[in-house]
């Protein structure tokens, strides 16, 4: 039992250690852009994650392992998706929900059926919609308007070299750590080196999002500009890198990973077009998480049926 637990913790440490390394870039950029406000939000979320993990461990009679980095990772991911100047209690609520309702009851670490950070952010988005999707201080090339909100109002941005560079470097209004495209591409390169398989859902997800945004553009300008804005707005790229690559929640079979990613993308873009929230990617991830085990189960059943029929045919042929 102890060995199994150590094995789980080691696996968790390896995977979430990678995530922590990848999160260093968005963290540094958010502090660069938003200064002390970003640092405060980050500190609050990480501290809350640690305290919740520790206290919940005591409640459920489970020893807290500092090496299990999933809680800290969840705290940082949620902080990156919030505006820098969000009130402290919102970050605390989101992280507490993620740890206490979405992580610990299911066993934590590699056993969670839902991405805890997605659950925490979704809960906070429902409770504090105004504060979560209102972006305040920081450098910006569009006054008080994020790419997501301009898409919601049907406006598009004429992409010039300067504002395209702003989008690539994340110098735009939005969540404090998810807007920098270059940082996300760096994380993708890291994942290609470390865990190539985990990028399959992300590829399906981004492909589906791109396709939907090209077929059903939300603004009246150039279709290409609209598609770029869709991909770079909000937390879409961030979710593709940090949520859909979570090995605990993605399906096992390769084909199912593609289906999982494509399904998430379609749900996300549908909710962006028809839903009430500016950034519904977390809801899409949670819905896809719910169907993930079903995909594997159906595939396994189909395989069993096919192999049984094949054996029956062989037996019949041999007489």
């Amino acid at each position: 039992m102890a060995d199994a637990r150590n094995g789980q913790t080691a696996k968790s440490t390896k995977i979430y250690g990678d995530y922590l390394l990848m999160l260093a870039a968005p963290c540094a950029l958010s502090i660069w852009y938003y200064g002390a406000a970003a640092l405060r939000t980050l500190a609050v979320c990480v501290l809350t994650a640690f305290v919740c993990d520790f206290v919940a461990g005591i409640i459920v009679n489970k020893q807290y392992y500092a090496a299990d980095l999933s809680g800290i990772c969840t705290g940082i991911i949620i902080a990156m998706m919030l505006p820098a100047d969000v009130p402290v209690y919102i970050g605390m609520t989101a992280v507490s929900f993620a740890i206490l309702a979405a992580k610990i009851p299911f066993g934590g670490g590699m056993r969670t059926p839902f991405v805890p950070a997605a659950a925490g952010f979704a809960f906070a988005a429902v409770c504090f919609k105004e504060q979560i999707f209102t972006y305040g201080s920081g450098r910006a090339f569009m006054k008080s308007v994020s790419l997501g909100s301009s898409l919601v109002s049907g406006n598009t941005v004429r992409l010039t070299a300067s504002n395209f560079l702003d989008i690539l470097t994340g110098n735009i209004y939005g969540p404090m750590g998810t807007t920098c495209v270059i940082a996300m591409l760096g994380c993708v390169v890291f994942l290609v080196i470390r865990r190539r398989q985990s990028l399959i859902p992300s590829a399906g997800f981004l492909g589906a999002c791109l396709l939907v945004s090209l077929i059903f553009p939300r603004s009246e300008g150039s279709v290409i500009s609209c598609a770029i804005m869709e991909l770079c707005s909000g937390s879409l790229l961030f979710a593709a890198v940090f949520m859909l690559t979570n090995p605990a929640t993605m399906p096992v079979h390769r084909a199912n990973k593609v289906v999982y990613g494509v399904f998430t993308g379609i749900v996300c873009m549908t909710m962006r077009k028809l839903g009430a929230f500016e950034e519904p990617v977390c809801f899409a991830v949670l819905i896809a998480n719910a169907f993930s085990p079903l995909l594997d189960m159906l595939t396994d059943r189909a395989r069993i049926i096919v192999s049984t029929r094949q054996k029956a045919r062989e037996v019949k042929a041999n007489g």
């Binding site: 209690y89 609520t93 809960f123 429902v126 409770c127 504090f128």
Partner: peptide, 12 residues
């Protein structure tokens, strides 16, 4: 209360 959690009044 200083703040409430409207999500708790929802079915989820």
């Amino acid at each position: 209360f200083k703040f409430t959690l409207p999500a708790m009044a929802m079915p989820a």
